[in-house]
């Protein structure tokens, strides 16, 4: 399973390095989302700071949808989905490999977006630990659930519009917990609040969807 995961992740990341779709299209899109929100909130820094954590995670979610769509678009061309099924790769390995490749891309996007939050909203990160754990757990959770729903939507003709419809409601806990954890880390949340319960929620979310993905990706791939 792990060998297959490394093989699939390496293939997806090599394709991204060549095509640079995430770097040249998804990343600018996510930055533009942040900038537009900044314009919409006006020149006053207080509401921008208050909204910074939530807007960071909204931009991450939008970018994650695009990254998942791109990941499964690779398998929609020239019969590559059948090629992947015929290869005999362990479905759990395919799931982990695709989730790992999406995670790497999301981490790059989150670094850029964190810079955007500091630049556009004037935010100061007070707890780097909370930010890092929230990003790591949120990324793993988004990649896992995105890979699952990406596979589910892959066999449907209207997959481009179906995927956001399916995915965004399911990842609401990541948006909620990530926002609260970041509010604590940026010092913009309710006084005395702790990031720990929100970080635990994100870790549980990631663990559950990674486990579910390993178990059901095979049947999902066959049914899609």
């Amino acid at each position: 399973m792990w060998r297959d995961a490394v093989l699939v992740a390496g293939k997806d990341l090599r394709i991204e390095l060549r095509s640079r779709v995430v770097l040249n299209q998804v990343a600018p899109f996510a930055i533009v989302v942040l900038a537009l929100f900044a314009f919409a909130l006006g020149p006053n820094r207080a509401p921008m700071l208050q909204a910074a954590a939530g807007l960071f995670w909204v931009a991450v979610l939008f970018a994650a949808v695009l990254a998942v769509q791109r990941s499964f678009a690779l398998e929609a061309n020239d019969g590559t989905r059948d090629g992947l099924r015929l290869s005999g790769l362990d479905p759990a390995g395919i799931f982990l490999g695709k989730a790992a490749a999406i995670s790497v891309q999301l981490i790059v996007l989150e670094i850029l977006l964190a810079g955007g939050v500091v630049l556009f909203y004037g935010a100061h990160i007070r707890s780097y630990g909370a930010v890092l754990v929230a990003c790591a757990a949120g990324t793993a959770g988004l990649a896992a659930v995105g890979t699952l729903y990406g596979a589910l939507a892959a066999g449907v003709r209207v997959r481009e519009t179906l995927l956001p419809f399916l995915l965004l409601p399911v990842v609401a806990p990541v948006l909620l917990a990530g926002t609260r954890a970041w509010q604590v880390a940026l010092g913009t949340g309710p006084g005395g609040d702790s990031a720990d319960p929100w970080l635990r929620l994100m870790l549980v979310f990631a663990a559950v969807y990674l486990a579910v993905g390993v178990l059901i990706f095979g049947p999902l791939q066959e049914a899609a």
Partner: peptide, 12 residues
């Protein structure tokens, strides 16, 4: 299987 589609990745 060698089908109508070659099952190759264009970017690789």
């Amino acid at each position: 299987m060698l089908g109508h589609a070659a099952a190759l990745y264009d970017e690789l």
